[in-house]
Amino acid sequence: MDQVAASVMVDQPTHTITLTVNKITYELKVLPWVTLLDAIREYIELPGTKKGCDHGQCGACTVLVNGKRINSCLTLAVMKNGADITTIEGVAEDGVLHPLQQAFIDHDAFQCGYCTPGQICSAIGLINEGKATTREEIQELMSGNLCRCGAYPNIVAAVQQVNGKL
């Protein structure tokens, strides 16, 4: 188990929690006001998950918690004690890209790349949910992830290529 020494001050209501992120279990000492997003980025030092608004309005911070996609900026790390979390860094297995990752590259489904980790985690969540079959359903169920570069049609094409084939 990796020990992550988050900054702790005396007399603060510190909580000791464990988070399993990308199959590695971390023991963290966190204060209650640390969000899951900041815990992942600043304490566990996995910066692949992005902060795009910090208010649940853009989807850049999307991670999978116990297989479900959520906005990691709107939950507290302490509330996710014991959870199994997958971030973009854990999507490829043994250096082999997940089919969605390859599809995103092949369809040029990103430009600046900043929303991409959230888009890919969201798309994995979408596929797990199994509710989207048509193009329009994919569009609707990917609408929680903003892309300011405007790569939407390519994102849909990438998700369509993989959806239902995993």
Partner: peptide, 13 residues
Amino acid sequence: NRVDGYAKVTGGA
């Protein structure tokens, strides 16, 4: 394909 694509889809960028 973009040469920085791998970095961008793996969180490495």
